[in-house]
Write a protein that binds this DNA or RNA. Structure first.
Lengths: 165, 165
DNA sequence: CGAAAGTATCTCGACGTCAAGATATCTGTG
DNA sequence: CACAGATATCTTGACGTCGAGATACTTTCG
């Protein structure tokens, strides 16, 4: 079975036979697979009327556990966007009735973003849908292979996470 | 060695013990690693005064082989952006003197984008720099593990590439 | 207690991308 | 040979993100 990266690597070997392009065999596949996953996620979420960024925010709140609330600051460290972007996102989620903004009782500068009932339902449904789609993609691999793949990837990701993202 | 995905999965198991979140062990790591790679690439290219999108366009032309030219249409299928975006990119690369626009002798609707000498040098230097950075990231794995990882990833990517992206 | 430094969030302007439409050219059919 | 439809590229307007700065409040320290 051949993929686009095999063709990419072959082209480089033809044009730059002096270079060792082995690293691309792993890392270009990671990047390309991630792009395909983004598209698949977008499709999966559209079934629930959600954009990927909405899913990211809602599930961050959902994972926090009852009462499902975090500050905008905590949300932006978890989702890796800037504060201007997060303000905009909270505005739109509020307009859709999926979250509410509450004053922080302990810090009058602060705000707490809390999931509404509807927001929690959306998050739960969208997560279930996403997992179903992902299981299909992973059906290419035997369970033992999946475990092995996860372990190999953990080795590559860990140094980044360790470095304080 | 623990990473962010271990924490993510643990949080879901706590909040949704009824769900099987195994797929996240593989696919969330793919997405997160891709994001880290994007940042690393951005840093690597900055050493050569290039943005990631500039690298994508220049290397597509470089891989085409002498005389290093492609039509805007070919470029946009390779880089997966829309035509408006590609027009804009070609404009800016032209302004930087890295490519030139030539009329297609066989089709007066068409244009050919050709790498300049400076553009080819940039592409070659940036590729070498990128490979050096990527080798460092992959040093976490033994060569045999890298080969195995590449093979596992190929199984997951191939169905997407096959489906006509 | 009061001033300075730190923190949390929001506002605003610039930028890159996308999607749809416009223009010019080519190709196949009758 | 003329015309309809296909193709190649560019133009335009809307949108989301970023980054810098503004505002309001809190904490620290003299």
């Amino acid at each position: 079975m051949e993929d686009e990266v095999d063709r990419l690597v072959a082209a480089w070997r033809r044009e730059r036979p002096d270079l060792d392009v082995e690293p691309l065999e792993v890392l270009s596949r990671v990047s390309r697979l991630a792009r395909h996953l983004d598209r698949a996620r977008r499709t999966a979420f559209a079934e629930h009327g959600l954009e990927p960024w909405e899913f990211d925010v809602l599930t961050a709140l959902r994972r926090a556990g009852a009462p499902y609330q975090l500050s905008p600051g905590q949300l932006l460290t978890q989702t890796l966007v800037t504060s201007g972007t997060m303000t905009n996102r909270i505005d739109r989620l509020t307009a859709k009735g999926l979250v509410v903004r509450l004053p922080d009782p302990d810090d009058r500068r602060g705000v707490l973003v809390r999931l509404t009932e509807a927001g929690r339902d959306k998050a739960d449904q969208a997560l279930a849908g996403l997992l179903a789609h992902e299981r299909e993609i992973l059906a290419q691999l035997a369970p033992a292979q999946q475990t092995e793949l996860a372990a190999l990837l953990r080795n590559l990701v860990a140094p980044f996470d360790r470095a304080g993202q």
